[in-house]
Write a protein that binds this DNA or RNA. Structure first.
Lengths: 188, 188
DNA sequence: TTACGATTTTATCAAATGATAACGACAGTA
DNA sequence: TACTGTCGTTATCATTTGATAAAATCGTAA
């Protein structure tokens, strides 16, 4: 737990303790859809280990990968819950994952009583927004090869840990294309 | 004002009046950058007429268009547009625009005292997130031609009102491509 | 009106990406 | 061990998109 917050946004030992006592820990196998679109959800999710992704289905019924998360990280509140507590997205594990769940209302209460926890939450939101902006800029103005290069910097070794189809649907290309790009990038 | 809220999210006459008395109205010529990245900003923006866009610059220094807004509409809310009261994005007018500005803190105060204004704000936020998701899905899984088709449905007649370069940078293609696609789509 | 500058279109060619199919590698299982 | 299904690669060909340059169009100001 200490390490978790140290990596993301340092908070006091008191805050860590107060969060920890409200957390429910869960271990999931890979390939588990643990948040479903349009379903009621009232939890916050801390990812302690493993890799998971958020996704939707396009008009053809294919999965479209929006974001990856790898421990240690926090899944973003906004997309998991709208004002009616319904998720906008699906989430699934791509490797075995260890998650920490907190009741969202409890967590909000902690934000009010602990200034550093509020700052922590703001940092999470900021990170997510910046990541989204960077991704959109990449999609709008970079070639697939450059998007893959950026992906490698941001998500080191993911190509050896999760299916390439998930990476392809994140980059907006086919899995055949990613294979071709991987070959082309070897000599560069 | 009545028409504005009627189109977006109906609120009571009392709420309209309470908002209206805190609004500052502004008329801008086309091509005016009225929100700048990294500059202090503490306002909410209501767009009563005209078309504007949010944008950033990519690594090559080219404008990347993120979203379009046309009256009547509300621009990206302060909460997700800024961090520490500094804007994450640029906004500029693409036609003459009539805007209404409200101090963000004043607006939040109204949300606490008026349930319908809070719901209105939540609706704006949700719409913004949904629009973003739809755009990302399009970028990830549609051809440029299909993205243009969708754009035409969502932004009727924009091709006759704003520069095609802005539309191209929104769709992630060159202005030459958009011209080619326009020709190809005439016979379909 | 003419002239100028910005925008849009067109043409040509090269490069990137998709579609389809076949092949190979690999893990799990009977 | 052989079988099976999943995943990744490779090959071929068609299509899409970009780059560059030139021409056409449009709006605005002199």
């Amino acid at each position: 737990m200490k390490q978790f917050f140290k990596e993301i946004f340092p908070v006091t030992q008191t805050s860590i303790t107060d969060i920890e006592e409200k957390i429910e820990f869960v271990d999931l196998n890979k390939g588990t859809v643990f948040i479903e679109k349009d379903k009621i959800n009232k939890k916050e999710y801390l990812l302690f280990s493993g890799i998971c992704k958020s996704f939707l289905f396009n008009a053809d019924g294919d999965e479209v990968t929006l974001s990856f998360y790898s421990g240690n990280a926090v899944l973003t509140p906004h997309t998991i819950r709208t004002q009616h507590n319904k998720s906008l997205l699906y989430f699934k594990t791509l490797t075995p994952c260890r998650l920490g769940l907190i009741d969202a209302e409890n967590f909000i209460a902690l934000m009010y009583t602990h200034e550093d926890i509020k700052n922590f939450a703001n940092q999470i939101l900021k990170n997510e927004l910046m990541t989204k902006l960077e991704k959109e800029i990449g999609l709008l103005s970079l070639s697939a090869a450059d998007r893959l290069k950026n992906f490698r910097v941001k998500h080191t070794n993911f190509e050896n840990l999760i299916p390439h189809t998930d990476i392809a649907s994140y980059l907006g290309i086919t899995s055949i294309s990613i294979s071709r790009l991987r070959k082309a990038l070897i000599h560069k």
